[in-house]
Write a protein that binds this DNA or RNA. Structure first.
Length: 997
DNA sequence: GCTCTGCTGAGAGGA
């Protein structure tokens, strides 16, 4: 008998179910020699329970209490058996693992796990590019049903000159001619294959004859939640298999099977065959194929791969081990998390020699166990020495620290990942969340918008339910039955009650008649960019060595003493001219950057003209002939600077998806420039090297341009909001860098509590700030009037913030009709003397720029709902204040309402529906950073200060958005318990107790 | 206790 903890509760985000697509919660695991028994339940109440007996090797499955599993096979009255002959157990089935990950784990499980954490940055090889291009030629010939040499060679040339692969050739440094040679070598065997297998009628008595009668699909995308698999099937073909006659007459078999194309050696290796077997497994629900084919395009030979139970069983066991390691890279030890061990390092040096995860493999080993370099086997010791010998203990510490933080932070992202809803929730359930629209049918012919972008229109039948999807959202399309999950992904264009239009990566016209569902797809972004950057920082090369010294060892930044050596003579006048428009600290900032040999930190306090400063800096650097890489975390921050820069005839290249770029910046994107004709490699090279200034987001550094170009300066805007690993990314490509930010404003958002407490919200900006000599402060501001500024000064800046002019200092809200409103209020007060409204009259006065409206005396209770926290009383008060202020002549577009919680914004917005309020912007503190309004109304929402406003940086941002008037609404008595708010309240002259009705 | 923006991606061969 096994005992299990009755208090163990299933978390909210877990979805369980019975039936063919079952999901069981593992209540308990009982291990015995040779077998393992699971106590499981598919109900969240954990009643009733069933059992599952694992044996014949399945008992080695690393399944634990609290895991979710899927069971295949049969159960006998609630007891399942998974053994040699029957049944499968799929561990964590909602984590879909790709076919290639699993087949790569055959040789080295450790490599497969690392491959999931770190997307390798090696950029591939010429052979790989050729492989991709041969695939493309084959697939397009298949679509055109024409494998003649003329057609093939035409398709090859299109691929060579089309936009798609030029970037890869640029990265790899191979010429179009070279690639052409490689590619053309394959064409004859492609034709040969077609002659041999495609509709061939050549009868052969002796052997099995396989004839491909139809190429049913190309690059079919498959998500198989039943087996926890995903993949892309090169070609899905209908084949006729005629076996040799043995006497009697035999009808040929017709089947739909996956074809896996390979351009490399005809190895027929276990990895290749495993890939095919996994494809047959994941398309079980679609066609139930028992066979697949490996098609080697070098020779045109085709090998059948028959999938038997044993192969499938062993591959699923590998998948289970892999998924276990991916999900359990962190373990708890005495309340503190730490990295877990990975599968062992191979001791066969031959295999490891070309492994793309070599460095990460060694780094990880030393991160979990610093002593491993001394105690392991000799082979491993040598390997560790070779890969990490150049690193000091602090370097290794930095690596393991950030690796752990990233793994911790990845966990909440994983649980939030809503992708599993696509297959675990019905359309009705998902529509209720607003994340899905169902009952859709194709309503118009699919049109091709550009290469690989297909415009679809769907008609919705039945009642339109609550609408949660918006245009621009990333989506995934599946059939409603759950047989064709994840058919295509793309973006939503138009949503109305009846019609949905979207652009998808695949043409779904062959599914006419199918009922579709469209789900929002937030995707699983993960933290692989972060980890890749941290790993790169540990590389044994010049760029990384230098950056490591500055970032990890915190070596003091150096400066040269004389400007004249950096300023070219011919640029002097231009630079002097540009400098004219700047104030003193801004000029200092320019000078510091020019003198820097390593880096400069520019602290841009609120309203001090950060964007202008960066724009001016770029102009100066440009005038001096320096190249500049301009980045920030968000597209909008990058474009804000570019919009300013554009006016000064400074040329630049903007990298990134056109969809995300500001419309006015679109003409500068690579996409648009290339439309004007870039067909050769040298044209592309020209485009990539033409502009001194290149702009992109920090995550956009996977672009081919960075395989070759280096910049004199890298500027990172909003650097105090970017987490360290991300901020590092662009710095690899520049000799010097400039971080612009303000650590007194919002830090990087970190969801995991432990990750935050262990320092994940420390930006690189903050880390480097200890070197005072690298810091310039922009403290002259042009936003807030004197009273508002002094509030922030007392809270955060110790009086360092200054007004740029008397005009700024004295500016007040203009309310042309205030007298009318005031007299109305007065007469109301006279008629109802029990309602003293003098507090309200004082509040409205522009000459009272900062007011706190204290709701302590009225019951202003917050309510915690599903969507978050709100406070109706505060919302009502804000509604009244705004009505009066707008009546008094304040323009709605000059008004901003800020609250720390989304739910409160909803509550406020719903009260501001009337047209009088059109233009009033209601948003979170976070969204308001970097922006301002003449009048800001701030709702504190909580009578007990929440986690969010305890952060004085968030509070600082909130109060510094107002130019002329700041109204704060909250419960003063309780808020006083928190030091930052207390400090703030003590500074105020105007605290009004409001008496609401 | 509820703040949010980034990202195509699974596979393209080689020993």
């Amino acid at each position: 008998m096994s005992l299990f903890c009755p208090c163990s509760k299933v978390p909210d985000h877990v979805i369980l179910s019975g039936g063919p697509n079952n999901r069981y919660w593992v209540v308990d695991v009982e291990e015995r020699p040779g077998h393992k028994t699971l106590t499981i339940s598919c109900s969240k109440s954990l009643q009733p329970t069933e059992t599952c007996l694992l044996k014949d090797g399945w008992e080695m499955t690393p399944v634990r209490r609290g895991d979710v599993v899927h069971l295949e096979g049969c159960s006998d009255g609630g007891s399942w058996l998974v053994d040699r002959e029957q049944g499968f157990l799929v561990l964590l089935p909602d984590s879909l693992i790709s076919g290639t990950s699993i087949s790569s784990s055959i040789r080295c499980m450790r490599r497969a796990v690392l491959g999931d954490m770190f997307k390798s940055f090696d950029g591939g090889s010429k052979q790989m590019l050729n492989g991709t291009m041969v695939h493309e030629v084959f697939q397009r010939a298949a679509t055109a049903k024409d494998f003649s040499l003329e057609k093939l060679s035409k398709l090859a040339d299109e691929a060579l000159h089309g936009p798609r692969y030029l970037g890869d050739m640029y990265s790899l440094g191979v010429s179009q001619e070279e690639m052409k040679q490689e590619l053309h070598d394959y064409l004859p065997s492609l034709q040969h294959w077609a002659n041999e297998y495609l509709n061939s009628s050549a009868p052969k008595d002796s052997a099995t004859v396989v004839t491909v009668t139809e190429l049913a699909d190309i690059e079919e995308n498959v998500w198989s939640p039943r087996f926890g698999l995903k993949g892309k099937i090169d070609v899905t073909a209908r084949v006729r298999i005629q076996r040799p006659r043995t006497g009697g007459h035999r009808t040929p078999e017709e089947k739909i099977v996956p074809l896996e194309l390979k351009t490399g050696k005809e190895s027929n290796s276990i990895e290749h065959r495993s890939q095919v077997i996994l494809y047959t497994l994941m398309s079980l629900e679609r066609y139930n194929p028992e066979t697949g084919f490996l098609l080697y395009l070098k020779t045109g030979n085709m090998h059948p791969v028959v999938a038997n139970h044993m192969d499938r069983r062993e591959l699923l066991k590998l998948r289970n081990t892999l998924v276990h390691h991916i999900h359990n890279c962190v373990e708890q030890e005495a309340e503190r998390s730490r990295l877990t061990r990975l599968p062992d390092i191979l001791t066969n040096r031959q295999t490891c020699q070309y492994c793309p995860q070599k460095r990460n493999c060694a780094l990880y080993e030393r991160a979990v166990d610093p002593s491993s370099a001394d105690v392991s086997e000799d082979v491993v010791q040598d390997f560790l020495q070779q890969e990490t010998g150049h690193l000091t203990p602090p370097h290794l510490n930095y690596f393991s620290h950030w690796l752990l933080l990233c793994c911790l932070e990845a966990a909440p992202m994983e649980t939030k990942n809503s992708r599993k809803r696509v297959w675990l929730q019905t359309v009705q359930e998902s529509e209720k969340n607003g994340s899905c629209v169902g009952n859709l049918q194709l309503s118009a012919p699919v049109t091709i918008q550009s290469e690989g972008v297909f415009l679809h229109r769907f008609q919705r039948s039945g009642v339109a339910s609550q609408q949660g999807l918006a245009s621009g959202d990333r989506i995934v399309v599946s059939d409603q039955e759950g047989r064709l999950v994840g058919l295509a992904t793309g973006y939503l264009c138009e949503v109305s009650k009846k019609v949905i239009s979207c652009t998808l990566d695949r043409d779904l016209s062959k599914y006419s008649g199918v009922l579709f569902r469209v789900d929002s797809d937030e995707g699983v972004v993960g933290l692989s960019t972060h980890l890749t950057n941290v790993s790169r920082l540990m590389e044994n090369c010049q760029d990384s060595d230098r950056l490591r010294e500055l970032v990890v060892d915190l070596r003091s930044p150096e400066f040269i003493s004389n400007l004249s050596s950096v300023l070219p003579r011919e640029a002097k006048d231009t630079v002097a001219n540009i400098l004219k428009g700047l104030n003193k600290p801004q000029k200092q900032a320019m000078k510091k950057v020019l003198l820097s040999k390593d880096y400069t930190l520019i602290v841009g306090m609120p309203g001090t003209g950060k964007t202008t400063t960066i724009c001016t800096l770029v102009r100066i650097l440009h005038a001096c002939g320096f190249s500049v890489l301009l980045t920030s975390y968000t597209h909008s921050a990058v474009d804000n600077i570019l919009l300013k820069l554009k006016r000064f005839r400074v040329g630049f290249l903007r990298l990134g998806q056109g969809q995300k770029v500001h419309p006015d910046i679109l003409p500068y994107t690579e996409e648009s420039v290339r439309k004007n004709g870039v067909h050769t490699l040298s044209e592309l090279e020209q485009l990539y090297s033409k502009e001194l200034v290149v702009a992109t987001t920090c995550m956009g550094i996977k672009h081919p341009i960075f395989t070759h170009r280096r910049f004199d300066f890298c500027i990172v805007d909003e650097a105090s909001q970017i987490s360290q690993p991300v901020c590092l990314g662009p710095l690899f490509y520049a000799k010097r860098f400039v971080l612009v930010g303000d650590h007194q404003q919002l830090p990087p958002i970190v969801q995991n509590q432990e990750a935050r407490s262990r320092g994940m919200d420390e930006s690189l900006f903050k880390r480097l700030e200890l070197h005072k000599e690298a810091v310039v402060q922009l403290n002259v501001q042009y936003r807030m009037n004197r009273q508002i500024m002094s509030l922030s000064n007392s809270l955060m800046y110790d009086g360092r913030l200054e007004c740029g002019s008397e005009r700024t200092a004295l500016a007040l809200l203009t309310l042309p009709f205030l007298l009318t409103v005031q007299s109305e209020l007065s007469s109301y007060s006279q008629m109802q003397p029990q309602h003293d409204l003098s507090w309200l009259q004082a509040t409205l006065l522009p000459s009272n720029p900062v007011c706190f409206l204290d709701c302590s005396m009225v019951p202003a209770l917050e309510s915690v709902e599903r969507g978050g926290i709100s406070n109706r009383t505060e919302a009502a008060l804000i509604h009244m204040l705004l009505s009066l202020l707008i009546k008094a002549g304040c323009k709605p577009s000059d008004v901003g309402v800020i609250a720390p919680y989304r739910q409160q914004l909803k509550t406020i917005s719903s009260l501001l529906q009337s047209s009088a309020f059109t233009g009033v912007e209601v948003n979170t503190v976070d969204r308001y950073q970097g922006r301002d309004k003449s009048l800001i109304v701030l709702s504190f929402v909580r009578s007990t200060l929440g986690e969010l406003l305890k952060d004085w940086r968030r509070l600082n941002v909130a109060i510094t958005r107002a130019k002329h008037k700041l109204l704060m609404v909250g419960s003063a008595t309780t808020l006083r318990r928190y030091t930052p708010v207390e400090k703030l309240l003590n500074h105020l002259h105007q605290i009004h107790s409001c008496v609401c009705h």
